[in-house]
Each structure stands twice: as C-alpha cells, then as structure tokens.
C-alpha cells in the first residue's frame, strides 16, 4: 500500500469494539490529498464509527491512522492539535444552541487557535457570505431551517481552515427539499480540492462526487474503487446485494 501524499489519510488495520460489539474489524482506507472518498454501507456497518476514530473522538483498539503524515493513533499525541486540522460535520448538526451563528463559528478560532476576535469575525463573515448565510449571522440556531443549520455547521468546521473534512450523513436529518442546498456546498468544497471523507446514503450524490467509493460491510472495507465501477460493475457479491437493495428501494 503506497503512502498517501502529505495531506491525505491512511487507515490501516483499524479495529474498534463497543463492549462485545466488534464494529470495525480491520479497516483499510486510503485517501489522497484532494480526493473525495465516500463511505457507503448498511446502517450499523461502522461508517460513523470510522469517521469518529479518524477525528479521535473514539480511541481505536488496534491499527493505525495517519493524517497528513502524522500517526494520530500514537500514544501521547495532542488530540486538540490534530482535531484542529480536521473538520467534522455531524448528521444532527450539533450547533451550540446558546450562541448566535456568528459565535458558533468564531468560538473555536478564537479560543482554540487564539485568533483575535475581529479577524475571526471577518473570516466568519466571508464564509457566511459565500454560502448565502450572511443574513443569519446574528440569529440563534433554533431560528434556522435544518438546511441552514447544517450549512452553518459546515461553515463552523471550515472556519478552522482544516486540511480535511469528514462529513457524516450530513443530509439524512433534512427534508428532501433542503438536501440540495447542502449537497451544493459540498460540491463546491470538492471543486476547490478539499480532501474529504463522506459517509452517505445518497448513492446518486456519491456517484457524482466521489473519487473513490468504499463499501463497508461486517466491519471491513468489502470493496473499494472508482464510483463508475462500484455502482455499475461491482465485483463482490455483497456489494451487488447491497446495491440491489438500494435499487429496489428506489434510491439509486
């Protein structure tokens, strides 16, 4: 397995259990810089767990994760510093409800990076402007639509200027008519060359945006490859069965 270029991610033989539940059973994933890798697989196959492991929100039991050339699973690694270089966006947005949109975005840059308030606000404003949210800057999150909240969550992660973005089913909590606006934001990020790992149930979107698709099943990457191949000519019977179910459900 070749080392990914600086700026990428290498996941090697990662195991993770919750009690008796052996969720990840030797996962290998490679993400080069500027690549967009989509994780697909049944509910419970461990997509979220893998993303949380990469961001060190969950400690791994075995295996190695290298982010931008640094082994982040090594003992005594500074987790806060590693996380500052990785943005993660959750399915449930997880905005801070007691803070305005602007404060949600400037909190980490000012408190974790020590950037001064004025500069952090200018950065936040330019991101809000770009993603069409500038008129919401002084609102509280519960006054926003789901799609707006999720875009704010993406902006909040981007405000840390991460090298890598991890997106965990960022559209599954949204009403169908709000999905497009969020996917559009992600497309823009991909077009700019942001390195991303995206867990998603939106197969059409994955086929569109992914440089590579990884199909997770039973705790391992059962099949990985360019989307054209995975979606039109899957090699593994498990992948075929999974995609067949998706097609039957009318979701591809």
């Amino acid at each position: 397995m070749s080392t990914p270029t600086i700026g990428g991610i290498l996941v090697e033989g990662v195991h993770k259990s919750f009690g008796d539940n052996h969720v990840l059973r030797g996962i290998d994933v490679k993400v080069h810089e500027h690549e967009v890798v989509c994780l697909i697989g049944a509910s419970g196959s461990g997509k979220s767990t893998l993303l949380r492991c990469i961001n060190l929100l969950e400690p791994v039991d075995a295996g190695k994760i290298i982010v931008s050339g640094e082994d982040v699973t090594a003992p005594r690694v500074n987790v806060d510093r590693v996380r500052r270089g990785i943005g993660i966006v959750f399915q449930a947005f997880n905005l801070f409800p007691h803070m305005t949109v602007l404060r949600n975005i400037t909190l980490a840059p000012t408190e974790a990076l020590g950037i001064d308030k004025k500069e952090a606000e200018e950065r936040a404003d330019s991101l809000l402007e770009r993603f069409g949210l500038i008129d919401k800057r002084d609102e509280y999150p519960d006054r926003l639509s789901g799609g707006q909240q999720q875009r704010v969550a993406i902006v909040r992660a981007l405000a840390m200027r991460p090298n890598i973005m991890l997106l965990d089913e960022v559209t599954s909590a949204l009403d169908p008519e709000l999905v497009a606006e969020v996917l559009q934001v992600i497309r823009e990020l991909a077009a700019e060359g942001m390195t991303m790992v995206i867990a998603t149930h939106e197969m059409g979107f994955a086929r569109d945006i992914a440089s590579r698709v990884c199909f997770l099943d039973a705790g391992v990457v059962a099949e990985a490859g360019p989307p054209e191949r995975i979606f039109t000519d899957p090699q593994e019977p498990r992948t075929r069965r999974f995609l067949q179910r998706i097609i039957d459900a009318g979701r591809l």
Partner: peptide
C-alpha cells in the same frame, strides 16, 4: 454529549 463531541472536534480543550 454530542455538544461536547462538537466542541472537542473543533479542537477545543
């Protein structure tokens, strides 16, 4: 706890 996860994931101590 997801609030803590969100804060920690941004690199806050």
């Amino acid at each position: 706890e997801s609030q803590v996860a969100a804060a920690r994931s941004l690199g806050l101590s």
